[in-house]
Simulated scan of single mutants.
Amino acid sequence: MNSNLKPSNLVTISVLLTLSRLQNWVNAKSEVPCYFIFGDSISDNGNNNYLNTLAKVNYPPYGNNFPEGPTGRFTNGRTVHDFIVESLGFKNYMPPFAQLRGKDVINGVNYASGSAGILDETGKINMGARIPMNQQILQNHRAVVSKITKEMRNDPAASKKHLAKCIYAVQIGSNDYINNFFMPKFYDTSRRLTMPTFTNVLIQQLSQQLRILYDFGARKFAVFGLPLIGCTPNAVSVHGTDGKPCVEKINKAAGLFNEKLQLLVHQLNANLTSAKMTYLNPPGLPVDLSIFANAESCCEIGGGGGELCIRDSSPCSSPEKYIFWDGVHLTETHYKVIAESAYSCTSPSCAAPFNIQKLAKL
């Protein structure tokens, strides 16, 4: 660097470089034209806010580390898909379907709903209103596809071409276990079906749902496996662990679901012409839990059905040191880990047959 430059000139150069980087970001084109999100509370960013449900979090301390404050995200900051759309180069997060109000849907929409499941019945008895997967697809996404077609001068071919380039993120299934099968007080599912049989029912239903999305024009699918739902503070508290770190029967169910889901992705790739579908396995919890303040929730729980943060309670001061934000959901820090794995992992153990970065380029 020229030693004759004055400090004032250095400041000017620094500002110009910063402005240049910002301008490049503003002008940058996203890696795909649109990103659609289907799922549950892991992905919900406001769709449950106006529903008569226990599963809504549009109050403090949720959003404690999010610029807009409480938005309906079930964590302290950004969700998995917020991080992913940032990585893909979008300038804005995908708007929740419930709050579109004339917003442009050409770049994507978030349909996810807290306590929703693959099955219509999941979450209904114990949590109240929610938007199950069938409604997310058959009612809400259908309406958005229709709107996109109208925006493209009522040209179905142009709409199909646009939608074929989008990524469809599907992250659902946890509630079908924790708010259905493993909740015999409210649901008789476990008395009617064995866990393997129930898992087959879920996979068959999800297969139909993915095929319907395909019929609507979807071609690029990012399908997420279930996390270790037996390790949440709520699961441990409700079910007990017999001295082990997690509830093994719940994690076993999630593991079986993931095995069958990965096989389903492989089958659909083979059977659906032009389908580009990938399975994304969320990374497990850190092996060394001692590096965190503790494995309990960052906020004081007792809201919702007992697993959510108590309204206006004071959370921990360092959520980045915690795995769980409330009794079920992770902190922003760990959602970022999941997002980074989904976007760039190159191992078949976490992305098969490819990660989201490669999916975007196909």
Score class of each variant (00 low, 15 high):
Leu206Tyr: 06
Gly243Cys: 03
Leu228Ser: 02
Phe224Trp: 02
Gly240Asn: 15
Ala253Arg: 07
Pro227Gln: 09
Val238Cys: 03
Phe181Gln: 06
Arg211Leu: 12
Val236Phe: 09
Gly230Lys: 13
Asn180Val: 04
Asn251Gln: 07
Gln205Tyr: 02
Asn180Gly: 04
Lys244Met: 04
Asp215Met: 10
Glu248Val: 04
Arg211Asp: 00
Arg211Phe: 03
Val201Arg: 14
Arg192Pro: 00
Val238Ala: 10
Gly243Arg: 08
Gly217Arg: 08
Phe182Leu: 08
Asp242Tyr: 15
Asn251Ala: 04
Cys246Thr: 09
Asn200Gln: 06
Pro233His: 10
Tyr214Pro: 01
Gly230Pro: 11
Phe182Trp: 11
Asp242Leu: 15
Gly173Pro: 00
Leu228Asn: 03
Phe224Lys: 00
Tyr187Ser: 04
Ala235Phe: 13
Lys185Ala: 06
Val201Cys: 08
Gly230Ala: 15
Gly217Thr: 01
Leu210Val: 09
Asp215Arg: 14
Cys231Pro: 00
Val238Gln: 15
Leu228Arg: 09
Lys249Asp: 02
Cys246Pro: 02
Phe224Thr: 00
Gln205Ala: 06
Val201Ile: 10
Gly240Glu: 08
Thr199Ile: 00
Val247Asp: 03
Gln204Asp: 06
Cys246Met: 08
Glu248Asp: 08
Asp215Gly: 06
Phe216Ala: 00
Thr197His: 15
Asp176Val: 09
Met195Arg: 11
Ile203Trp: 01
Cys231Met: 07
Asp176Asn: 04
Gly173Cys: 02
Thr194Ile: 03
Ala235Lys: 13
Ala253Phe: 03
Gly225Gln: 10
Lys220Asn: 05
Leu193Gln: 12
Arg219Trp: 05
Ser207Asp: 10
Pro233Gly: 05
Phe198Gly: 07
Thr241Lys: 11
His239Ala: 12
Phe198Gln: 11
Ile178Phe: 13
Leu226Met: 11
Pro196Gln: 14
Val238Tyr: 12
Pro233Tyr: 13
Asn179Arg: 09
Glu248Lys: 14
Gly230Cys: 12
Phe181Ala: 05
Ile203Pro: 00
Leu206His: 04
Thr232Cys: 11
Lys252Pro: 00
Ser174Lys: 04
Val170Tyr: 10
Ile212Lys: 10
Glu248Ile: 05
Ile178Glu: 12
Thr197Gln: 15
Gly243Pro: 01
Asn251Gly: 03
Phe182Pro: 01
Phe224Ile: 00
Gly173Gln: 03
Ile172His: 06
Asp188Tyr: 10
Pro227Glu: 02
Arg211Met: 13
Lys244Gly: 10
Gly240Val: 10
Lys244Arg: 15
Tyr177Trp: 08
Leu210Gln: 10
Leu210Cys: 04
Arg191Glu: 04
Leu226Ala: 07
Gln208Ile: 09
Lys249Trp: 00
Gly217Trp: 08
Met195Trp: 01
Leu202Gln: 02
Val238Met: 15
Pro227Lys: 09
Asp215Lys: 13
Pro227Asp: 01
Gln171Thr: 14
